Computed example of a mutant assay.
Amino acid sequence: MTVEYKTIVVPADGSENSKRALQHAVSIAERNKAQLVVVHVANIVSAISNFDQTPISGGYVSEQIAEDMEETGKEILNDVVKEVPADVTVKSVFEVGSPGPAVLAVAKKFNADLIVMGSRGLGPLKGLFMGSVSSYVTSHSTCPVLVVK
């Protein structure tokens, strides 16, 4: 039996591990003529909770955080897309929410055959990938998950 990968989801947070995961995903995509779906998840709730000691005047802080996170996320996605060879089809997706469930939702939406992700993200200080997202994804995914160290 031959397993064919047509759509590969790759979470990207700018960390070294996510860059290594991308290299593996590109290699698999090239061999299988698969498309990559690169997803960045902005975990705004965790970022705002880091600011709960800050007095907020007029409620603009959370809006600013959201805008900053979106800008950062789109920069990360653009940088990742530039790393993908021209012969590989790539889509980029920006999501807001809890990283594990958001990655799985994107995988379901695009009918992914495989998720390739780093074992660790940037951690809570960056507010992008919190906790063990890879273990959440591996235990809840309906498709195979390759975790790259």
Rank of each mutant, 00 (worst) to 15 (best):
F129M: 14
D79S: 12
V81T: 11
T7E: 05
S62N: 11
E16V: 10
P144H: 08
G73H: 03
A34Q: 05
L128C: 03
T138K: 12
G121I: 02
Y60D: 07
P101Y: 11
K6T: 08
S141L: 10
L77N: 03
S132F: 03
H140P: 07
Q53E: 07
F110V: 08
M130P: 02
K109H: 13
V37N: 05
I8C: 04
F110K: 04
F110R: 00
D113L: 09
V84I: 15
E63A: 13
N43T: 13
P144M: 03
M1W: 06
E63N: 14
G14H: 05
A21G: 10
V41N: 00
I65A: 12
S18L: 06
G14A: 14
A112C: 07
S57D: 06
D113G: 10
T89A: 07
V61W: 03
E16F: 00
V93I: 14
V45E: 06
D13Y: 10
M69N: 08
G100D: 00
S135D: 06
P99H: 07
T142C: 15
A34S: 07
G123D: 08
V116C: 13
P144F: 06
A21M: 08
A66P: 07
N50L: 06
E16C: 00
D13N: 10
V137G: 05
S134F: 05
E75C: 13
K109L: 09
A21Q: 04
S98W: 00
V90H: 03
V133C: 00
K6D: 11
V147D: 08
V38G: 04
M69S: 12
N43C: 05
F94K: 05
S27D: 14
E67W: 05
N32D: 09
T2E: 15
R31L: 15
S57Y: 09
A12E: 11
S119Y: 01
G123M: 03
V106S: 00
D87W: 13
G127S: 02
V45R: 02
G100K: 11
A112H: 10
I56L: 00
F129S: 14
D68E: 12
I76H: 02
D68T: 02
M69H: 09
V38M: 02
E95Q: 15
M69T: 03
L22G: 01
A12K: 12
H24I: 03
M117N: 00
N17P: 12
I76E: 02
M1L: 14
R31C: 14
S57M: 09
N17F: 15
L36Q: 06
V26L: 02
V133A: 01
H140M: 13
V9S: 11
G118D: 12
T54F: 06
D79W: 04
P99G: 01
N32C: 07
G121L: 02
L22N: 05
S132C: 04
L128A: 04
T7H: 00
F94Y: 15
G118F: 08
R31Y: 13
S18D: 05
G59H: 09
V3G: 13
G123Q: 05
P85Q: 12
V37F: 04
Q53M: 11
V61S: 01
V81M: 14
E75G: 11
A102L: 04
A112F: 09
V37H: 05
P55G: 09
L125K: 13
K126I: 14
V148E: 11
I28M: 08
P55Q: 15
K109V: 00
